[in-house]
Design a protein around this nucleic acid. Structure first.
Lengths: 147, 147
DNA sequence: TATTGTTATACTCTATAACTATA
DNA sequence: TATAGTTATAGAGTATAACAATA
Protein backbone atom coordinates (compact mmCIF):
# COMPACT_ATOMS: atom_id res chain seq x y z
CA UNK A 1 0.00 0.00 0.00
CA UNK A 2 1.45 3.33 -1.11
CA UNK A 3 1.08 6.18 1.34
CA UNK A 4 1.66 9.89 0.67
CA UNK A 5 4.96 11.19 2.04
CA UNK A 6 4.41 13.96 4.57
CA UNK A 7 7.87 15.20 5.40
CA UNK A 8 10.60 15.32 2.78
CA UNK A 9 14.22 15.03 3.94
CA UNK A 10 17.49 15.51 2.05
CA UNK A 11 20.01 13.87 4.37
CA UNK A 12 21.69 11.95 1.53
CA UNK A 13 22.37 15.16 -0.40
CA UNK A 14 23.41 17.20 2.61
CA UNK A 15 26.20 14.69 3.02
CA UNK A 16 27.86 16.44 0.08
CA UNK A 17 29.55 19.73 0.84
CA UNK A 18 29.17 20.76 -2.83
CA UNK A 19 25.41 20.72 -2.27
CA UNK A 20 25.73 23.36 0.44
CA UNK A 21 28.15 25.26 -1.75
CA UNK A 22 25.81 25.22 -4.74
CA UNK A 23 22.81 26.52 -2.86
CA UNK A 24 24.84 29.15 -1.02
CA UNK A 25 26.28 30.35 -4.31
CA UNK A 26 22.83 30.44 -5.86
CA UNK A 27 21.77 32.93 -3.18
CA UNK A 28 24.83 35.11 -3.63
CA UNK A 29 24.35 35.02 -7.39
CA UNK A 30 20.71 36.09 -7.11
CA UNK A 31 21.56 38.94 -4.74
CA UNK A 32 24.39 40.19 -6.95
CA UNK A 33 22.32 39.84 -10.13
CA UNK A 34 19.56 41.99 -8.67
CA UNK A 35 21.99 44.72 -7.64
CA UNK A 36 23.81 44.76 -10.97
CA UNK A 37 20.55 44.68 -12.89
CA UNK A 38 19.70 48.07 -11.41
CA UNK A 39 22.92 49.39 -12.93
CA UNK A 40 22.15 47.84 -16.34
CA UNK A 41 24.80 45.14 -15.96
CA UNK A 42 24.87 41.36 -15.84
CA UNK A 43 27.35 39.49 -13.69
CA UNK A 44 29.43 38.61 -16.74
CA UNK A 45 29.41 42.17 -18.15
CA UNK A 46 30.34 43.56 -14.73
CA UNK A 47 33.24 41.11 -14.60
CA UNK A 48 34.35 42.16 -18.08
CA UNK A 49 34.06 45.87 -17.25
CA UNK A 50 36.04 45.45 -14.02
CA UNK A 51 38.81 43.61 -15.82
CA UNK A 52 38.99 46.28 -18.54
CA UNK A 53 39.16 49.07 -15.97
CA UNK A 54 41.90 47.20 -14.10
CA UNK A 55 43.78 46.19 -17.29
CA UNK A 56 43.16 48.95 -19.84
CA UNK A 57 44.26 47.97 -23.32
CA UNK A 58 43.93 44.22 -22.96
CA UNK A 59 42.76 42.23 -25.97
CA UNK A 60 39.46 40.34 -26.25
CA UNK A 61 41.28 37.05 -26.38
CA UNK A 62 43.11 37.90 -23.16
CA UNK A 63 39.88 38.91 -21.49
CA UNK A 64 38.08 35.76 -22.64
CA UNK A 65 40.84 33.62 -21.19
CA UNK A 66 40.84 35.53 -17.88
CA UNK A 67 37.06 35.19 -17.56
CA UNK A 68 37.21 31.56 -18.70
CA UNK A 69 34.65 32.08 -21.47
CA UNK A 70 34.85 31.54 -25.23
CA UNK A 71 36.06 34.40 -27.42
CA UNK A 72 32.93 34.05 -29.53
CA UNK A 73 30.67 34.57 -26.53
CA UNK A 74 32.59 37.63 -25.42
CA UNK A 75 31.76 39.54 -28.60
CA UNK A 76 28.18 40.41 -27.65
CA UNK A 77 29.27 41.32 -24.11
CA UNK A 78 31.83 43.78 -25.47
CA UNK A 79 29.28 45.06 -28.01
CA UNK A 80 26.90 45.79 -25.15
CA UNK A 81 29.48 47.59 -23.01
CA UNK A 82 30.55 49.62 -26.04
CA UNK A 83 26.96 50.52 -26.96
CA UNK A 84 26.52 51.82 -23.39
CA UNK A 85 29.65 53.96 -23.81
CA UNK A 86 31.39 52.20 -20.91
CA UNK A 87 34.33 50.99 -23.00
CA UNK A 88 35.56 51.24 -26.58
CA UNK A 89 37.59 49.14 -28.98
CA UNK A 90 40.83 50.88 -29.98
CA UNK A 91 43.20 49.76 -32.69
CA UNK A 92 46.42 48.16 -31.46
CA UNK A 93 49.24 49.49 -33.66
CA UNK A 94 51.33 46.44 -32.79
CA UNK A 95 48.70 43.94 -34.04
CA UNK A 96 46.00 45.02 -36.42
CA UNK A 97 44.02 41.84 -35.88
CA UNK A 98 43.33 42.69 -32.26
CA UNK A 99 41.43 45.38 -30.37
CA UNK A 100 42.67 47.11 -27.25
CA UNK A 101 39.76 47.43 -24.82
CA UNK A 102 39.74 50.83 -23.11
CA UNK A 103 37.32 52.04 -20.42
CA UNK A 104 35.61 55.41 -20.76
CA UNK A 105 35.36 57.76 -17.76
CA UNK A 106 31.75 56.63 -17.50
CA UNK A 107 32.88 53.00 -17.49
CA UNK A 108 35.43 53.65 -14.76
CA UNK A 109 32.84 55.38 -12.60
CA UNK A 110 30.28 52.61 -13.10
CA UNK A 111 32.84 49.93 -12.27
CA UNK A 112 33.41 51.59 -8.90
CA UNK A 113 29.71 51.91 -8.16
CA UNK A 114 28.98 48.37 -9.30
CA UNK A 115 31.88 46.98 -7.28
CA UNK A 116 30.51 48.59 -4.14
CA UNK A 117 27.01 47.34 -4.92
CA UNK A 118 28.31 43.79 -5.30
CA UNK A 119 30.28 44.09 -2.07
CA UNK A 120 27.18 45.30 -0.26
CA UNK A 121 25.08 42.45 -1.64
CA UNK A 122 27.70 39.95 -0.52
CA UNK A 123 27.92 41.52 2.91
CA UNK A 124 24.17 41.04 3.31
CA UNK A 125 24.41 37.36 2.37
CA UNK A 126 27.53 36.57 4.38
CA UNK A 127 26.66 38.91 7.22
CA UNK A 128 26.54 36.10 9.77
CA UNK A 129 30.04 34.89 8.84
CA UNK A 130 32.98 35.76 11.04
CA UNK A 131 35.13 38.13 8.92
CA UNK A 132 38.20 36.19 10.03
CA UNK A 133 36.60 33.03 8.65
CA UNK A 134 36.04 34.69 5.26
CA UNK A 135 39.69 35.66 5.07
CA UNK A 136 40.65 32.11 6.01
CA UNK A 137 38.38 30.71 3.31
CA UNK A 138 39.40 32.98 0.49
CA UNK A 139 42.86 31.49 -0.15
CA UNK A 140 41.53 27.98 0.48
CA UNK A 141 38.84 28.38 -2.19
CA UNK A 142 41.20 30.13 -4.57
CA UNK A 143 43.58 27.19 -4.34
CA UNK A 144 40.84 24.91 -5.67
CA UNK A 145 40.72 26.50 -9.10
CA UNK A 146 44.24 27.82 -9.37
CA UNK A 147 45.68 24.35 -9.82
CA UNK B 1 49.98 55.47 -27.49
CA UNK B 2 48.33 52.15 -26.81
CA UNK B 3 50.60 49.37 -25.61
CA UNK B 4 49.80 45.66 -25.38
CA UNK B 5 49.05 44.46 -21.85
CA UNK B 6 51.48 41.77 -20.74
CA UNK B 7 50.23 40.63 -17.37
CA UNK B 8 46.51 40.50 -16.63
CA UNK B 9 45.39 40.90 -13.00
CA UNK B 10 41.97 40.42 -11.37
CA UNK B 11 42.42 42.19 -8.05
CA UNK B 12 39.10 44.05 -8.36
CA UNK B 13 37.18 40.79 -8.80
CA UNK B 14 39.09 38.89 -6.13
CA UNK B 15 37.79 41.49 -3.71
CA UNK B 16 34.46 39.66 -3.95
CA UNK B 17 34.17 36.43 -2.00
CA UNK B 18 31.42 35.27 -4.35
CA UNK B 19 34.00 35.24 -7.13
CA UNK B 20 36.12 32.73 -5.21
CA UNK B 21 32.98 30.79 -4.40
CA UNK B 22 31.85 30.66 -8.03
CA UNK B 23 35.14 29.37 -9.37
CA UNK B 24 35.54 26.86 -6.55
CA UNK B 25 32.04 25.56 -7.20
CA UNK B 26 32.77 25.34 -10.92
CA UNK B 27 35.61 22.95 -10.15
CA UNK B 28 33.53 20.80 -7.83
CA UNK B 29 30.73 20.73 -10.35
CA UNK B 30 33.07 19.62 -13.15
CA UNK B 31 34.58 16.88 -11.00
CA UNK B 32 31.18 15.60 -9.88
CA UNK B 33 29.74 15.79 -13.40
CA UNK B 34 32.57 13.65 -14.77
CA UNK B 35 32.09 11.02 -12.07
CA UNK B 36 28.31 10.87 -12.48
CA UNK B 37 28.59 10.82 -16.26
CA UNK B 38 30.37 7.47 -15.99
CA UNK B 39 27.32 6.16 -14.16
CA UNK B 40 24.92 7.55 -16.77
CA UNK B 41 23.66 10.31 -14.49
CA UNK B 42 23.65 14.10 -14.50
CA UNK B 43 23.95 16.09 -11.30
CA UNK B 44 20.24 16.89 -11.35
CA UNK B 45 19.18 13.29 -12.05
CA UNK B 46 21.47 12.04 -9.29
CA UNK B 47 19.88 14.54 -6.93
CA UNK B 48 16.41 13.38 -7.97
CA UNK B 49 17.33 9.70 -7.60
CA UNK B 50 18.84 10.27 -4.16
CA UNK B 51 15.74 12.10 -2.97
CA UNK B 52 13.46 9.35 -4.28
CA UNK B 53 15.53 6.65 -2.57
CA UNK B 54 15.45 8.63 0.67
CA UNK B 55 11.75 9.55 0.36
CA UNK B 56 10.07 6.69 -1.50
CA UNK B 57 6.57 7.56 -2.60
CA UNK B 58 6.97 11.32 -2.79
CA UNK B 59 5.13 13.17 -5.55
CA UNK B 60 6.75 14.96 -8.47
CA UNK B 61 5.54 18.30 -7.18
CA UNK B 62 7.14 17.60 -3.81
CA UNK B 63 10.40 16.60 -5.47
CA UNK B 64 10.40 19.66 -7.72
CA UNK B 65 9.97 21.92 -4.70
CA UNK B 66 12.72 20.13 -2.77
CA UNK B 67 15.12 20.42 -5.68
CA UNK B 68 14.04 23.99 -6.36
CA UNK B 69 13.24 23.32 -10.02
CA UNK B 70 10.04 23.74 -12.02
CA UNK B 71 7.61 20.80 -12.18
CA UNK B 72 7.67 21.02 -15.96
CA UNK B 73 11.44 20.58 -16.06
CA UNK B 74 11.30 17.60 -13.74
CA UNK B 75 9.23 15.56 -16.18
CA UNK B 76 12.07 14.66 -18.54
CA UNK B 77 14.36 13.89 -15.60
CA UNK B 78 11.83 11.44 -14.18
CA UNK B 79 11.22 10.02 -17.67
CA UNK B 80 14.94 9.34 -17.98
CA UNK B 81 15.25 7.68 -14.57
CA UNK B 82 12.21 5.56 -15.35
CA UNK B 83 13.53 4.55 -18.79
CA UNK B 84 16.72 3.39 -17.06
CA UNK B 85 14.64 1.29 -14.67
CA UNK B 86 15.98 3.20 -11.65
CA UNK B 87 12.57 4.39 -10.46
CA UNK B 88 8.93 4.02 -11.48
CA UNK B 89 5.76 6.07 -11.27
CA UNK B 90 3.13 4.35 -9.11
CA UNK B 91 -0.48 5.41 -8.76
CA UNK B 92 -1.34 7.10 -5.48
CA UNK B 93 -4.74 5.72 -4.39
CA UNK B 94 -5.30 8.84 -2.29
CA UNK B 95 -4.88 11.24 -5.24
CA UNK B 96 -5.25 9.99 -8.79
CA UNK B 97 -3.73 13.19 -10.22
CA UNK B 98 -0.36 12.47 -8.66
CA UNK B 99 2.34 9.85 -9.04
CA UNK B 100 4.25 8.26 -6.19
CA UNK B 101 7.90 7.97 -7.17
CA UNK B 102 9.39 4.64 -6.10
CA UNK B 103 13.00 3.49 -6.50
CA UNK B 104 13.77 0.07 -7.98
CA UNK B 105 16.41 -2.16 -6.41
CA UNK B 106 18.66 -1.09 -9.26
CA UNK B 107 17.95 2.55 -8.46
CA UNK B 108 18.74 2.05 -4.79
CA UNK B 109 22.04 0.37 -5.62
CA UNK B 110 23.04 3.07 -8.10
CA UNK B 111 22.19 5.82 -5.62
CA UNK B 112 24.66 4.29 -3.17
CA UNK B 113 27.39 3.94 -5.76
CA UNK B 114 26.80 7.44 -7.15
CA UNK B 115 26.76 8.94 -3.67
CA UNK B 116 30.15 7.42 -2.94
CA UNK B 117 31.50 8.59 -6.31
CA UNK B 118 30.36 12.14 -5.59
CA UNK B 119 31.88 12.00 -2.11
CA UNK B 120 35.17 10.80 -3.58
CA UNK B 121 35.19 13.56 -6.20
CA UNK B 122 34.55 16.15 -3.50
CA UNK B 123 37.26 14.74 -1.30
CA UNK B 124 39.72 15.15 -4.16
CA UNK B 125 38.74 18.79 -4.65
CA UNK B 126 38.56 19.72 -0.96
CA UNK B 127 41.44 17.50 0.05
CA UNK B 128 43.53 20.40 1.30
CA UNK B 129 40.75 21.63 3.57
CA UNK B 130 40.88 20.91 7.29
CA UNK B 131 37.96 18.50 7.94
CA UNK B 132 37.06 20.55 11.00
CA UNK B 133 36.78 23.61 8.77
CA UNK B 134 34.38 21.80 6.45
CA UNK B 135 32.16 20.91 9.37
CA UNK B 136 32.28 24.50 10.55
CA UNK B 137 31.35 25.76 7.08
CA UNK B 138 28.50 23.39 6.39
CA UNK B 139 25.96 24.92 8.79
CA UNK B 140 27.18 28.42 7.95
CA UNK B 141 26.54 27.87 4.23
CA UNK B 142 23.27 26.09 4.86
CA UNK B 143 22.02 29.07 6.83
CA UNK B 144 22.48 31.24 3.74
CA UNK B 145 19.76 29.53 1.75
CA UNK B 146 17.54 28.25 4.55
CA UNK B 147 16.28 31.74 5.33
C1' DT C 1 50.40 27.97 -40.62
C1' DA C 2 48.56 30.24 -36.55
C1' DT C 3 45.90 33.87 -34.26
C1' DT C 4 42.06 37.56 -33.63
C1' DG C 5 37.65 38.82 -33.89
C1' DT C 6 33.39 37.47 -35.72
C1' DT C 7 29.15 34.87 -37.26
C1' DA C 8 26.26 31.04 -37.25
C1' DT C 9 24.63 27.25 -34.94
C1' DA C 10 23.48 23.78 -31.61
C1' DC C 11 22.84 22.14 -27.11
C1' DT C 12 21.70 22.63 -22.26
C1' DC C 13 19.30 24.88 -18.58
C1' DT C 14 15.60 27.40 -16.97
C1' DA C 15 11.04 29.91 -16.83
C1' DT C 16 6.23 30.60 -18.37
C1' DA C 17 1.85 29.58 -20.31
C1' DA C 18 -1.61 26.49 -21.42
C1' DC C 19 -3.77 22.07 -21.46
C1' DT C 20 -6.08 17.41 -19.12
C1' DA C 21 -7.58 15.02 -15.45
C1' DT C 22 -8.57 15.09 -11.20
C1' DA C 23 -9.57 17.27 -6.43
C1' DT D 1 -11.60 26.92 -8.26
C1' DA D 2 -7.29 24.84 -7.39
C1' DT D 3 -3.74 21.25 -8.03
C1' DA D 4 -0.61 17.43 -10.50
C1' DG D 5 1.49 16.19 -14.36
C1' DT D 6 2.45 17.29 -19.02
C1' DT D 7 3.59 19.74 -23.43
C1' DA D 8 5.28 23.47 -26.04
C1' DT D 9 8.05 27.26 -26.26
C1' DA D 10 11.15 31.05 -25.41
C1' DG D 11 15.15 32.96 -23.21
C1' DA D 12 19.54 32.59 -21.26
C1' DG D 13 24.21 30.49 -21.16
C1' DT D 14 27.69 27.92 -23.33
C1' DA D 15 30.46 25.22 -26.86
C1' DT D 16 32.04 24.29 -31.67
C1' DA D 17 33.00 25.15 -36.44
C1' DA D 18 34.08 28.10 -40.02
C1' DC D 19 35.37 32.46 -42.08
C1' DA D 20 38.22 37.06 -43.26
C1' DA D 21 41.97 39.73 -41.95
C1' DT D 22 46.36 39.70 -40.25
C1' DA D 23 50.61 37.73 -38.15
Amino acid sequence: MIEPVEQITDKSLRRHFGYSLKRAYARVHTAITEELNQLGLKVISYSALSMIVENPGLKQSQLAEALMIERSNLVVIIDDLENKNLIYRAQLPSDRRAYALIPTDEGKALAVRAGDAVADAEAAVFGHFDPALIEQLRPAFDRIWSR
